[in-house]
Design a binder for these strands. Structure first.
Lengths: 230, 230
DNA sequence: CAGACCGGTAACATATCGGTAACAAATCTA
DNA sequence: TAGATTTGTTACCGATATGTTACCGGTCTG
């Protein structure tokens, strides 16, 4: 279940937001000031944060910065001001979206979905990088047009999705573990095995450049053919 | 160098955009209609796309969808319409940002930076001095364009970073040791070894001027080719 | 000039990591 | 419920990372 942290000191608006988001199928945590927001963030590890700029106890910008030092959880900044300087300050502090009040709830939800799609990888039928495409629903991977689709297990799917969504970027073992098994984590051994199994299924035959590259002592990268200077 | 594809049929605006973006340090490709946009995208593989909605030969939305089937290159949609339905349609097609005309150039650039930060990778990531560049994430060093990247170990990495960040300045053995092993320190022997090993990996072939120079009884300097006193 | 010291080189030892494999436990499916 | 599939566990092996020690040649100094 996707969890969203809403930080908003206007109680009426906060309620509306919570209600709407819950109806849209998210779990919602509420905070009315900066300090509790930060505490809640650390405790609940939401998948996304909707953050009002003007809140008591540490303003939104500050919260934004602090959160960024911890993780790259997507943040939507909510505010009445929309002067250039503000927008730029917000984006520089690490916000991912900037929405000015008043705003449309439908639009907000669309933006949330879009952000989640990019980071968490919410419902989206197909993912692809180069010749490899992944049908999330059917749980199968295809090599371009080549025969036959390869069936993936649930865990293999999650792993491949995580890699695919961050193609050409190094994923640490830690973050992969969290992405696959959730925050409770798992052994490194388990990841090792999973990588091994996934490779056996989708790695192109011997000669070709390897798809999933090991970065010793760090993690793994899925290379797209494009970025394959070598 | 970060490469941006701008798709805009209003020639005046396109020029302004290209000019501003180039001044901001990006490489810019221009397309004035959908079909060439797609072609350029496939050919140049830009890091980000700024996409006008209303363009000849396949509208922006369509281009957006097509691009998405190939990769998850970030897309900023540019348009005059800002009805809910439009925003939602754009985001659903896979756009990452939606900016309505008229817009502020500074804001656009800030959004571009923010998107790039999210996708390409954090500001850190690459360090370089002269021909040598260091990919911190992947723990590898590259010599200009020459093959193949050299993998560095964790300690070698730290050492090289310390030297690189203080290029052309002498680092004492003490400070190097602290930078590499932390305040608890380590033996001089260990540093000696590490320097030796690092040199073996990244020092240019015999003839050339040495990269890491020894300052007897003091420490080491990493020389950038520019300042090559001798 | 001799000995101390320094830095480069080398060989070695040990620990850890990552790939592989076989097997056991758990889960799914017919 | 039986059999197949998926997932976790353990073991082994070779490669790599890192620390340790030793040797050698140069330079400085008394």
């Amino acid at each position: 279940m996707t969890r969203i942290l809403v930080v908003e000191d206007d109680l009426a608006l906060a309620d509306v937001l919570a209600f709407t988001l819950r109806r849209a199928g998210f779990e919602v945590d509420l905070a009315h000031d900066g300090r509790t927001a930060l505490a809640l963030f650390l405790k609940e590890k939401p998948d996304l944060i909707v953050l009002d700029w003007t809140i008591p106890n540490m303003d939104g910008l500050e919260v934004c910065t602090r959160v960024r030092t911890e993780s790259n959880t997507p943040i939507i900044m909510l505010t009445v001001r929309n002067a250039d300087e503000d927008v730029i300050a917000a984006l520089d502090a690490g916000a991912d979206e900037y929405v000015t009040k008043p705003f449309s709830l439908r639009q907000l939800i669309a933006r949330i979905r879009s952000l989640l799609r990019r980071t968490i990888g919410e419902p989206q039928g197909m993912l692809n990088a180069g010749p490899l495409s992944l049908d999330v629903e059917r749980r199968e991977a295809r090599w371009g047009d080549e025969r036959p689709p390869i069936h993936l297990t649930r865990l293999e799917m999650r792993l491949l999705m995580a890699l695919l969504q961050n193609a050409d970027r190094v994923m640490t073992t830690e973050s992969l573990i969290t992405r696959v098994w959730g925050p409770e984590g798992a052994t490194h051994e388990m990841l090792k095995q999973l990588i091994y199994r996934l490779r056996n299924k989708i790695e192109p035959e011997p000669g070709a450049p390897t798809l999933i590259e090991t970065i010793p002592h760090v993690g793994y990268v899925l290379n797209t053919p494009a970025n394959h200077r070598k």
